[in-house]
Nucleic acid binder design. Structure first.
Lengths: 231, 231
DNA sequence: CCGCATATTATGGGATACCATAATATCACT
DNA sequence: AGTGATATTATGGTATCCCATAATATGCGG
């Protein structure tokens, strides 16, 4: 059969308007094109996105369930503010979830995955060296995605992805921290080493340490901000 | 002051129609008033819920983001089916999240929380004895809610709550299993004991074991079903 | 000029009616 | 029987309504 290799399916990427609007809005919020706490007036968003109010409302509801938008009684949606305490909780959750993904990878011990992770880590180091912080962030996301998807942890990846969006501003701050360009990659290397060794417990630990470390940096930065404000 | 104790606030539970519809729909799906995979025709739901299509659409979108509804290209929403593999992942996630909540409780070691947990566990035992399975489920949910909320893990509780909805049918099956009426409460007692002793690691382990056990039972039941179908 | 009551406006919550299109079902013809 | 044309159903999406309420502006009496 000529079609046995390539299943010849006619795929259609045709996303709905709603999905496009959702991505645009999520992107806008995550990249802070709105101030935290800013009101999101439905009719204004209709103009800005060029879609009807129906769509805007569906999108806002969706983002609410992701925690990026908060809807207050009779006042409508605003950009959700993530408190330091919530950020702490989010880092804690990421710590254990990334831990189990890393552990699962270690147990599988797939050389292809190890190679992929090493390629991505090289990209991260290069991005740090070139001081391209956006590239650091996206490559780091790739690193974790690889961990999750290759161990079949799709549900967990969905959760991590969703909650990480709420602390994106902290992520971009932590990677700018002095020495993080060495510490971060070093910790990720440990994850890879543990996977290569097939050591599940060590992989869990290494992934957990990496997140816990980022959490500590973020907490320090927030405390500093708080201090500066009180001054 | 006569009003000092009871702050005399005129609270308004005034939920929006949308929220009411959302709860009704979620309830209907979780309690399997729809078959898995069944199409959810918007206009029909309008009639059944007595609300406009606007609301129904927002609700369906919301439930999609919770994973209870799946929306397929140009065919509209259907009741999402949770595969055995997804169920496995969900149990794994619950295992670690309930673990960290239990651990946090153990570190706090609050006698009031311990007392509360023991009250709830007594209710669970009573419900098992009376063979009131719905009461077992709701009390078990209370047990875990107590663990999460009293350790301030609100974000994690939200996640657990949401993913647990997707395996509700398995939950009601596992608690019917022979011996689960003894094993389950015994494992929960271990969690309480560890908290009482302030032993974080033991509390994590006990909570994790409880969930892992439920997962194993569910997996066995699913395998059995599969076998029966193939017969 | 201040305090209060009263418009006014902005906006959300919700409902309808409508259109275009895709998927499906029906049917008629050869 | 199988092909093609047609009708039906339902989604994706839009445009407007209406009403209730929160915030703001306005105005008036002292």
């Amino acid at each position: 059969m000529s079609a046995s290799e390539q299943p010849m399916r006619v795929l259609r990427p045709e996303k709905t308007l709603r999905e496009l609007a959702l991505e645009k809005m999520r992107d806008a919020i995550v990249n802070m094109h709105f101030r935290a706490g800013e009101r999101l007036v439905e009719r204004d968003l209709c103009d800005q996105l060029g879609v009807s109010r129906t769509i805007v409302r569906e999108v806002l509801r969706h983002l609410e369930s992701e925690g990026l938008v908060a809807i207050q009684q009779n006042r409508g949606p605003i950009v959700a503010e993530t408190t330091p305490e919530e950020a702490r909780q989010i880092y804690e959750i990421r710590g254990v979830l990334e831990g189990i993904a890393a552990k699962a990878c270690a147990i599988q011990k797939d050389p292809a995955v190890v190679a992929e992770l090493e390629r991505i880590l090289a990209r991260i180091r290069a991005a740090y060296a070139a001081n391209e912080l956006a590239a650091v962030l996206s490559a780091t996301t790739d690193f974790y995605r690889t961990l999750f998807e290759n161990s079949g942890r799709h549900v967990a990846w969905g959760i991590v992805n969703s909650i990480t969006a709420r602390i994106n501003h902290l992520r971009s701050m932590t990677i700018k921290t002095p020495d993080r360009d060495k510490q971060g990659p070093a910790q990720m290397q440990k994850i890879i080493d543990a996977i290569k060794a097939g050591d599940g417990a060590a992989a869990y630990e290494a992934a957990n340490v990496h997140v816990t470390n980022a959490a500590a940096i973020a907490e320090a930065l927030l405390a500093e901000q708080q201090g500066a404000k009180a001054r």
